[in-house]
């Protein structure tokens, strides 16, 4: 079953066609690697998928429902990290996440436990009560990932995710993370995928990371999707994703 499907999505900025006829397909349970060089259009796609900007043409469908008409229902089970994560710097990391949980309608008595679990999972529980202003770049990134993961951490019984497993969109989640952080996040994503059936769309330019993490990949070049399929299909006998990527993009 497809969680996400885009049909001929296009978006220009002025004269620059940032995205051209993009047709993505992400199935339930996928960890989809959305690959592309800097400026390929990954962040633009993600902004469109989250409804932060609008396409000039094309449609975005979640479970066959168009995003344009069903954004509220859809966003209940979608979480996202876009570009560089940003927070209220005068609040603690915990309070920032608390606000997002409140906004999602999670009852107060469930939030405390959920936040502890979430902060523990992304490895910033020790600094959770410090102001975000004092966080290092890596800590902000971890907090950003935590904010995107909220729908995956809500117990089904709470019912704020509309009965759907979470769909989490992460824009270059490894940015600013140290090697240990990268491994921790990779394991966390795999764990949530397995234990909570969460589906992921992860944009990255780190091909070796995608190779370790994803079961499906799509390669974006200058706003166009040049190939999409399972990791094996796309690698087609090449010894690494890097050499396959080179073949498709002429890098």
């Amino acid at each position: 079953m497809l969680v996400l499907k885009t049909e001929n999505l296009s978006r220009r900025f002025g004269k620059l066609p940032a995205l051209d006829n993009l047709s993505l397909e992400v199935a339930a349970g996928d960890i989809y690697g959305f690959l592309g060089l800097n400026g390929a259009g990954k962040t633009t796609t993600i902004r469109l998928l989250l409804g932060l900007i609008r396409p000039q043409s094309g449609r975005i469908l979640y479970y066959d429902q168009p995003l344009a008409e069903n954004r509220l229902a859809i966003m209940n089970y979608v979480g996202g990290l876009v570009d560089v994560p940003t927070f209220y710097s005068y609040l603690s990391g915990r309070d920032n996440l608390y606000i997002l949980c409140r906004m999602r309608g999670i009852p107060n008595d469930k939030i405390t436990g959920l936040l502890n679990e979430l902060l523990e999972a992304v490895g910033i529980i020790k600094r959770a009560d410090d102001k975000v202003r004092t966080y290092s770049q890596g800590m902000r990134q971890r907090l950003g990932i935590a904010s995107a993961l909220i729908p995956a951490f809500v117990p089904t019984a709470v019912g704020t995710t509309a009965g759907k497993p979470a769909f989490i969109i992460l824009d270059e989640p490894t940015n600013g993370l140290d090697p240990k952080g990268i491994i921790e996040m990779r394991n966390l994503i795999k764990r949530l995928n397995k234990e909570r059936n969460a589906t992921f769309l992860i944009s990255t330019h780190l091909l070796s990371e995608a190779e370790k993490l994803c079961n499906k990949v799509g390669i974006l070049e200058s706003g166009k999707l040049v190939v999409q399929g399972s990791l094996q299909e796309v690698m087609k006998g090449k010894e690494s994703l890097e050499s396959a990527f080179g073949g498709f993009t002429g890098m």
Binding site: L50, M75, N76, L100
Partner: peptide, 10 residues
Amino acid sequence: VLKMVLIAPY
């Protein structure tokens, strides 16, 4: 932060 807030279902 507006983008983070606008991702929520509102």
